[in-house]
Design a protein around this nucleic acid. Structure first.
Lengths: 331, 331
DNA sequence: CTGAAAGCGCTTACAG
DNA sequence: CTGAAAGCGCTTACAG
């Protein structure tokens, strides 16, 4: 392994001179030395040892991405997409991305500290533990899609409530009057609760309150589809709080000989790639995942550069993308 | 920050004693000391500094996952899935996963060396540079889906050729006689070339050679769909070398008023989650991504434990999953 | 512009 | 079972 020392010996200068050149502190070194040292670095193929650097300078150049769930959270296309964008952006800034899948929040601090992460971005629900995580880690922590009530924390989210609202309005405009909601993780995710609330509130305000029994949290989607189809008061419009569920639902309904949108109209949420290619193409609430990732990373580096900044959260807009999964009942 | 020294002072022992306890080398420490030191570690919330450990012991506990492509390679569901499984498995072994998106292979060595990665898993096409990468990095390197002719390298792949063969046979059995192939990245990916070869060889052996003009490499899939539909000798059966393309194709054909499988029968490759939910559900060549990831990680740790093992590659089987995208033309 | 010294937090190798 | 010494490769802080 080639070290600073090797270069120094070869160049007949001190280790410090080499260190300066490696770190581009050219104004502290004579041009002659810069040239000679650089050529020797090239020749010997020197690559800095980041762990040594981290130890001595107390700066690791590592950003951690903490993702909730340990059983392949990448099965969620949303997570996969976010992570992809985030890693790209972290790299583009010359930092390194360390990814951790975590179930138990107590592991968060361990991971962050042991590698001296300079910052972290969180995907998933850490609402209950944000305060503790903040307390234990005095580095920029960027949460996404959180609805924690902790006062000073940075969150990059979207207007989930409005998303639900837009879905409801669209159904109403198209003449629908009987609704159901399919909401995975409803009881643990405030994010989902917001989407449902936006939907239900809007429908209620139109004088069409949704019975509690029409809000379904699926464990086994096949069973839930059965419940949906045998609701005492039949529905024509179903809001699914995630596209993935909506797409699966279309397929399950078909198996029962039911058609979308003729028998059930459907609106999803997220605007995942596949929602465009399903049959029928899915009308959905679109969020801009690439933009969200960019805000998360940009915000993180913002705080890295100036940690006196006040905590500022970001709420991105959503919009309805109309495709073919909603039947027009009035013209 | 709490260090070994702090614990040692508090416990009235040497730093070495604490180090031994932290590293579970209990047979070298008296029970009394173990207990006292452990309780102090608890109390002070000691967390080891991995960069210090890496520097002094020359073992980083980092495994790098190198993914080809810098513009969000997670847009590929296959990559996302593999990465998810791989990270889970690396973590489960107490190692840390560092993820790098790379376009230029010269960066590989830099990343691997600067963090002293103990091993690396590669996703994507590095065939041209495998020899160089191996030469520069004397650690276990696990490639996936590679068809490099380098002799001593470890690859975890699937039987792509057989996959193409199975697709061809299925079409033939169902009575199809006119074929086309849609193969993204055909000219750069040997993996794709194998799938196509398996398909074309089998069809040729049945006395139905495929004209070169029927093998389409899409850049813009919409344009390619146009070409497909206006082939001088019309076809009834299309083999798409990836599910993602197949699913998009279904949707594009629909837009032209064409139906799958009535107008075009389709077989995909990968058995991605969505292939089950498309309309029609996609008949496809299934590979077991979870298993592949497991082999990659297991093999890596195999070599980590014993680097004298001979290079051994793994070829996993594939199978045809029959769904609804192939029309039966004879009974 | 240059370099010698000390230290980051840990482990290895050794002596007792 | 215990600990003092040296060192991993780098940077910080200082002196010149």
């Amino acid at each position: 392994m080639v070290t600073l020392k090797d270069i120094a010996r070869e160049a007949g200068v001190s280790v410090m001179m080499v260190s300066r050149v490696v770190n581009h502190r050219y104004n502290e070194v004579s041009q002659e030395n810069i040239d000679r040292i650089q050529s020797i670095i090239q020749k010997l193929g020197y690559i800095p040892d980041f762990s040594a650097r981290s130890l001595s300078s107390n700066s690791s150049k590592i950003i951690s991405v903490i993702i909730q769930g340990i059983d392949n959270p990448m099965a969620s296309p949303y997570n996969a997409n976010m992570l992809g964008h985030i890693i790209s952006l972290i790299q583009a800034r010359g930092y390194n991305a360390m990814v951790h899948f975590i179930d138990d929040y107590t592991e968060v601090t361990m991971h962050l500290r042991s590698w001296k992460s300079e910052g972290a971005i969180f995907l998933g629900t850490f609402d209950e533990n944000i305060r503790q995580i903040q307390q234990d880690n005095q580095i920029p922590l960027i949460f996404t899609d959180s609805y924690s009530s902790v006062r000073q924390f940075i969150n990059i989210g979207i207007d989930d409530y409005k998303g639900g609202m837009l879905a409801a309005r669209h159904f109403l405009e198209k003449g629908h009057r009987e609704f159901a909601v399919i909401a995975p993780h409803l009881h643990i995710s405030q994010l989902i609760q917001q989407r449902v609330a936006g939907f239900c509130d809007t429908v209620s305000q139109a004088g069409l309150p949704i019975p509690q029994s029409h809000i379904l949290e699926p464990y086994n989607l096949e069973e839930t589809t059965g419940r949906l189809c045998s609701l005492p008061e039949p529905v024509t419009a179903v809001f699914s709080t995630t596209d993935l569920t909506a797409i699966q639902l279309i397929s399950l309904l078909k198996k029962r000989g039911l058609r979308v949108p003729e028998d059930y109209s459907l609106i999803g949420f997220d605007n995942l790639l596949y929602s465009e290619f399903s049959t029928p193409a899915l009308t959905t609430i679109a969020q801009n995942i690439g933009l969200k990732a960019r805000y998360a990373v940009d915000t993180l580096f913002h705080y890295l550069e100036d940690d006196s900044l006040p905590a500022r959260s970001v709420v991105l807009d959503v919009e309805l993308v109309e495709r073919d999964s909603v039947l027009v009942k009035i013209t």
